[in-house]
């Protein structure tokens, strides 16, 4: 029962942030050069996600082949130790399948699939720790890993969660906050205001939806900038090694 002041009248949240502040965002790409074609590691607050992309490659089932474009496969594996209380998860848990499908649908539009017909691109995500904003972190990690793998995309998809506390919108929620209010997760295409992903599982009054989306989109743009920064940093590093 949340007896905590999730958003105090003085404008501070339970971890000291204000309503429109992101948590610590840290990311790396190309973390597993040998075991995957593209890889990334994302930390949003205490949520830690590893992503490994392999592909485009030949599909294991001939039946899975699609001659018009690549088949994208997402595989999220949430470690049983990722939450405060250990919970053993089966591979076919509904929640996991739902995450997979959501991510597949999100990236289907952004990856230029027609460039890779009759191939499979499989994205494997490992969740090591969860503290709120899971889907957003998975989205961000996938974006980075796909970029690292050199798979053509139209733009970045940056994800963030935002919630409504009474009538105040709050950006980037941690677990405590997620359990105490309705929240949504969005995935924004690059610097535009177009959404590739919008997931809302509770109820939010329509009048407040606009404000909530506004701050969430702003937050996503900041995430996109941070991701872009890391990609360029890494690229420069690689490039510097080529040039003598």
């Amino acid at each position: 029962m949340s007896r905590l002041e999730l958003y105090s009248p003085e404008g501070l949240r339970v971890d000291g942030r204000r309503w429109n502040e992101l948590r610590r965002f840290d990311c790396r790409i190309n973390t597993h050069p040998q075991s995957a074609d593209g890889s990334s590691y994302v930390e949003q607050g205490n949520t830690k996600v590893i992503c490994m992309v392999s592909g485009p490659k030949e599909p294991s089932n001939k039946s899975q082949q699609n001659s018009s474009g690549a088949v994208i496969e997402f595989n999220v594996s949430i470690a049983s130790f990722s939450t405060t209380n250990r919970k053993k998860r089966s591979k076919n848990e509904k929640r996991t399948i739902e995450l997979n499908t959501t991510l597949e649908r999100t990236f289907e539009q952004s990856i230029i699939r027609k460039l890779y017909p009759r191939t499979t691109i499989s994205v494997n995500l490992h969740v090591l720790a969860q503290d709120g904003g899971l889907l957003a972190a998975l989205t961000n990690a996938s974006t980075l890993a796909l970029i690292d793998a050199g798979i053509s995309m139209y733009d970045y998809i940056s994800g963030i969660s935002a919630g409504l506390h009474d009538i105040s919108p709050l950006l980037d929620l941690n677990t405590l906050e997620e359990s105490g209010m309705s929240f949504l997760t969005i995935g924004v295409v690059g610097n535009s205001e177009k959404l590739s992903l919008l997931l809302l599982e509770d109820k939010i009054p329509l009048d407040n939806l606009e404000d909530l989306l506004a701050i969430a989109i702003a937050g996503s743009h900041r995430i996109r900038d941070l991701m872009d920064q890391e990609v360029r940093r890494h690229a420069n590093l690689r490039a510097s090694k080529l040039v003598k």
Binding site: H32, P33, Q34, S35, A36, N46, K48, A79, F81, S82, T83, T84, H126, L128, A129
Partner: peptide, 22 residues
């Protein structure tokens, strides 16, 4: 390195093999 676990370890080899234990 895993804050919510009592103990954690990661072992990596040069060929990319990786194991995380919590």
């Amino acid at each position: 390195f895993l804050p919510s676990s009592n103990g954690s370890a990661r072992v990596r080899l040069t060929d990319g093999s990786e194991i995380i234990t919590s």
